[in-house]
């Protein structure tokens, strides 16, 4: 006899309940807030689509969006390539493999705030370690955190350092699930390494790649604590991304309605992105 059809749902219940109470309902409230003028304290005032209308016209909002986008399209490919490269090196039988894996994974276990502070000590303009060394060998100190371009680079660098290990682990799992027969066959056929990579590894890794891409894109869009600790979003607004901007609007300017509207827009953008990636890769199916 087949089990009753409700049983799976009962198993889902605990998570569903927690997910609803702490994620779904607050998100729905957020949508409601986005149609109101609300400072979190005094009564809400219904304003219809006014928040969205002023968002569409706000040059600053779209500037922040653009900046976030640039960060995402810079950081994600680098994370992807870096994690894949390291994973490929560390699936091979090399000495000290476990140690290397641990070393690359180590930064993942450190919270973003600490990562930011650590890099701040390394790159700090006046009293950072790097500039101290540069000056020691007679070079000009670099404005790692107070020049907009260098500050963006520093943020990317810290992002890579802290995240590559995580995606490396996913890639290692993906790589290990590729049957060795394919590689043997390729070797017998005389395929070189590059050919093997593009014709065997990459296609068979597609489900893993999709997962890494989606996760890293969403994560990059939402990145905030790292910048907060490393540059504070500065110099000026050079490294202020969308989530920090939403936080400032909601909790410093106390415009919760407007901040909610921004969150809704961000949600739509990330959703569109994810669906697009899914479609483009046919859900990670291997053809």
């Amino acid at each position: 006899m087949r089990p009753k059809s409700y049983v799976p749902y009962v198993f889902l219940m605990p998570n569903l309940l927690i997910f609803s109470v702490f994620i779904v309902f607050p998100a729905l409230f957020g949508i409601v807030y986005s149609f109101h003028k609300y400072d979190g304290l005094n009564p809400m005032e219904f304003v219809g689509f006014r928040n969205y209308a002023s968002l569409l016209q706000s040059r600053e909002f779209w500037e922040v969006m653009r900046r976030t986008f640039v960060y995402v399209v810079t950081a994600v490919p680098l994370i992807f390539a870096g994690a894949l490269l390291i994973a490929m090196m560390l699936v091979q039988e090399i000495r000290g493999r476990g140690l290397f894996r641990a070393v690359y994974y180590w930064p993942v276990m450190i919270s973003f705030i600490i990562v930011g502070l650590t890099w701040k000590w390394i790159l700090g303009d006046s009293f950072g370690v790097v500039n101290y060394l540069l000056e020691r060998i007679g070079l000009e100190p670099v404005k790692w955190l107070s020049d907009p371009t260098y500050a963006k680079l520093s943020v990317i660098l810290a992002t890579l350092w802290s995240r590559i290990g995580f995606y490396m682990v996913i890639f290692i799992a993906g790589l290990q699930s590729i049957p060795q027969d394919y590689y043997e066959a390729a070797r017998i056929d005389g395929a070189n390494r590059i050919r093997t990579f593009f014709n065997i590894t990459l296609p068979l890794l597609k489900p893993t790649s999709l997962l890494v891409l989606i996760l890293s894109v969403i994560e990059a869009f939402k990145q905030y604590p790292l910048m907060m600790a490393l540059t504070g979003g500065g110099p000026g607004k050079a490294t202020t991304n969308i989530v920090q901007y939403i936080y400032q609007t909601g909790f410093i300017k106390m415009q919760l309605g407007m901040a909610s509207a921004m969150s809704v827009v961000l949600f739509v953008i990330i959703a569109v992105f994810t669906v697009f990636q899914f479609r483009l890769t046919r859900g990670g199916a291997i053809e």
């Binding site: 701040k120 303009d125 009293f127 790692w144």
Partner: peptide, 18 residues
């Protein structure tokens, strides 16, 4: 005034303490 405080977010208390 070092630019690192207003542009680089360096903590002025820490700088003074050095």
């Amino acid at each position: 005034i070092p630019e690192s405080v207003w542009l680089g977010g360096e903590n002025p208390n820490n700088l003074f303490r050095t």
